[in-house]
Amino acid sequence: MVKSFNLVEGYDFNRLELFEFSLIILVLVCIYYLFVRAIYLLKSTLKDLSEGNYFSELVITNFKTIGKLILACGISFSLYRFILRLLLLSEIKPGIDNGLIVSIILGLFFMFLSEVFAKARKTKEENDLTI
Score class of each variant (00 low, 15 high):
96 I>N: 04
22 S>M: 10
70 I>W: 02
1 M>I: 14
30 C>D: 09
67 G>L: 04
43 K>R: 12
102 V>Q: 10
5 F>N: 04
20 E>D: 15
27 V>R: 12
44 S>W: 03
85 R>V: 07
7 L>R: 12
117 F>T: 07
82 F>S: 02
82 F>Q: 07
39 I>K: 02
80 Y>T: 11
65 T>H: 00
41 L>E: 03
9 E>P: 14
58 L>T: 08
29 V>N: 07
34 L>I: 15
25 I>E: 08
55 F>E: 01
52 G>E: 05
70 I>N: 02
92 I>A: 09
65 T>C: 02
55 F>C: 04
49 L>R: 00
107 G>L: 06
51 E>S: 06
75 I>F: 12
60 I>D: 00
120 A>T: 05
6 N>E: 15
112 F>R: 06
121 R>A: 03
58 L>K: 08
46 L>E: 01
95 G>N: 09
119 K>P: 06
37 R>F: 14
111 M>I: 12
112 F>A: 12
123 T>M: 11
87 L>Y: 09
23 L>F: 10
18 L>C: 06
25 I>D: 09
80 Y>V: 08
93 K>W: 05
85 R>T: 14
108 L>E: 12
54 Y>I: 03
37 R>P: 01
128 D>V: 02
48 D>V: 07
68 K>S: 07
11 Y>P: 09
62 N>L: 01
30 C>S: 14
27 V>S: 02
33 Y>E: 06
94 P>M: 06
53 N>Y: 01
37 R>H: 15
18 L>N: 10
84 L>Y: 07
59 V>Y: 02
24 I>T: 14
80 Y>Q: 08
104 I>N: 08
125 E>P: 06
56 S>N: 06
127 N>F: 09
93 K>M: 01
50 S>A: 12
67 G>H: 00
69 L>V: 06
129 L>D: 07
64 K>S: 13
7 L>N: 10
68 K>G: 03
107 G>H: 03
53 N>T: 01
29 V>Q: 05
18 L>H: 11
36 V>C: 05
115 E>I: 10
7 L>V: 12
101 I>T: 12
22 S>V: 06
53 N>V: 04
86 L>E: 06
118 A>V: 00
124 K>E: 13
79 L>C: 12
62 N>W: 03
122 K>D: 14
92 I>W: 09
113 L>W: 07
37 R>Y: 15
93 K>V: 09
87 L>R: 13
4 S>M: 11
121 R>L: 00
66 I>A: 01
116 V>R: 13
88 L>R: 06
51 E>G: 02
39 I>P: 05
81 R>L: 14
123 T>V: 08
14 N>R: 13
25 I>K: 11
34 L>E: 10
105 I>F: 13
70 I>L: 03
93 K>R: 12
112 F>Y: 15
11 Y>L: 11
46 L>W: 11
121 R>E: 05
58 L>A: 11
63 F>P: 00
61 T>Q: 03
73 C>A: 12
1 M>G: 10
124 K>I: 02
73 C>I: 11
34 L>V: 13
6 N>D: 13
41 L>N: 04
83 I>G: 00
105 I>G: 01
108 L>H: 12
41 L>M: 04
112 F>S: 04
21 F>A: 10
5 F>A: 01
86 L>Y: 10
76 S>T: 13
75 I>D: 06
31 I>G: 09
58 L>P: 01
70 I>M: 01
100 L>V: 00
129 L>A: 15
18 L>G: 08
